[in-house]
Design a protein around this nucleic acid. Structure first.
Length: 419
RNA sequence: GUGAGUGUAGCUCAGGCGGAUAGAGCACUGGGUUGUGGCCCCAGUGGUCGAGGGUUCGAGUCCCUUCACUCACCCCA
């Protein structure tokens, strides 16, 4: 039996890698410009980092983690998200001693055991950006601004920014209880799932697509009505600063986050071209995370971008594949060796040169040059080579010129690296 | 974890109510043009029909099991 990749784990093939490289490169440029530094964190951590950070009762921790016992008996987990690890690294290496404010980003794969679907895989890539050590709402707006700027830079326009406030440790439980009381009276109108949600996480009922549940919750109290004065002030400031930056947003009082550590500002960017998994990106403030994982009281805010989802939205017509600059066609035995020698010299100069290894007919080599979309073909014919001359053909406009072999390297460098 | 749909060549898909060597287009290789790509023409390579079992004289086709993919629920980026 042929061995195949495991379920929900995908290969990213050469014909699509250009998009990935483009997105990563753009993220680095934009984030570095905003003062962020890259950090690389391990792919596995002790399981308790996630169970304490993300929250025992969340779906991620309850049923989606790739956990295993290693040979020394420790429970390890393949990272389902990056924030907890980044916070751990900040604490462990005492990055706050250099500067209490840390702006970090991280690009890499995450792992969650879920049923694969459009925009949802078991190994998926995220671009994460986090700011640790600042509680000021200015940073909330700044992070969102950077995110939107990045999305524009990669060419996405038809997106919707949604924001909400989730309250804090003090006011959120009050809201939760209030909502629960309100819905318990109407529980007979809720679907089976929502009956369960009512006990486990009543906020999730906002997400339910069942008609009667939507009706039941239509006039339910909203988080914003319950949040404490400090949270209210914070949220108003965030909105003010977003306005100052000229950003359009939609208030979505029903937006809920699935990770327990989120507090106050929560945001999502959704696309209606994505299907069911419509969040390209999501994030928010998490002022309790650091204490949950046993560290100092450090505020934080950040977001994660789903790379697969983002890439599926990239303009289809844009060309991301790199083609050879030059194809060296050498139909004869001796010229074949010359092609090898020249190709290697060109590679050292950073010129993407290709040639035929099999010694096939000129026609066959020309066909291959065409298929690979080479810009130029250098024809090394037996007769010309004896005279020390070669033919350079421009594949686009079909023009040809005969050149001397003596300084061919310089000529090609001039033509290709400048053109 | 639940539901629905789909698995035939590298890709997209035909294969009537079970019948003899399983097809097409594209792609690939070679040739038509002894040294010049795309278009055209000709030829060739390529399949355990997802896997396992069953029914039958006979299974790509019918039945069961299983696996994978897709979409949705759920959940989230």
């Amino acid at each position: 039996m042929e061995i195949k990749a495991i379920r929900g784990f995908n290969d990213i093939l050469p014909d699509e890698i250009g998009k990935w490289q483009f997105v990563e490169k753009t993220a680095r440029e934009v984030f570095e410009g905003f003062g962020f530094s890259e950090i690389r964190i391990p792919i596995a951590e002790r399981t308790e980092l996630f169970s304490r950070g993300i929250g025992e009762a969340t779906d991620i921790v309850e049923k989606e983690m790739y956990s295993f016992i290693d040979k020394s008996g420790n429970s390890l987990t393949l990272r389902p998200e990056a924030t907890a690890s980044m916070a751990r690294a900040y604490l462990e290496h005492k990055l706050y001693t250099f500067d209490p404010v840390a702006k970090l980003y991280c690009i890499g794969p995450m792992f969650r055991y879920e049923r694969p679907q459009k925009g949802r895989y078991r190994q998926f890539y995220q671009i994460d950006a986090e700011v640790f050590g600042v509680g000021n709402p200015m940073v909330d707006a700044e992070v969102i601004l950077m995110l939107i700027h990045f999305l524009k830079r990669v060419g996405l326009e038809k997106l919707e920014l949604q924001i909400n406030s989730l309250g804090c440790r003090d006011c959120r439980p009050r809201y939760r209880d209030g909502l629960k009381t309100y819905l318990t009276e109407k529980s007979f109108r809720l679907c089976e799932d929502c009956q369960r949600r009512l006990q486990a996480n009543p906020l999730r009922i906002f997400d339910c697509k069942v008609q009667t549940c939507q009706e039941a919750i239509a006039d339910a109290p909203k988080v914003i009505d319950f949040i404490c004065d400090e949270c209210d002030v914070h949220f108003n400031r965030v909105k003010e600063y977003l306005g100052m930056a000229g950003l359009d947003y939609i208030l979505n009082p029903r937006m809920v986050r699935g990770l327990d550590y989120y507090t106050r500002t929560a945001f999502e960017v959704v696309s209606y071209d994505l299907g069911s998994q419509n969040a390209v990106t999501g994030g928010g403030r998490y002022d309790n995370l650091f204490q949950e994982i046993g560290g100092l009281d450090v505020p934080g805010i950040g977001f994660a971008i789903g790379m697969e989802r983002l890439i599926s939205l990239l303009p289809k017509d844009k060309e991301f594949i790199r083609h050879p600059d030059l194809f060296i066609a050498a139909p004869g035995k001796e010229t074949h060796k010359e092609a090898y020698r020249l190709a290697n010299q060109l590679h050292v100069e950073g010129i993407r040169a290709e040639f035929d290894y099999e010694g096939k007919s000129l026609k066959s080599q020309m066909r291959r040059a065409d298929k690979l979309k080479a810009r130029y073909v250098l024809i090394l014919g037996e007769e010309e080579l004896e005279k020390g001359r070669v033919v350079l053909r421009n594949m686009e406009d079909k023009s040809q010129e005969e050149l001397s072999m003596d300084n061919i390297l310089d000529i090609l460098k001039n033509k290709i690296l400048r053109g």
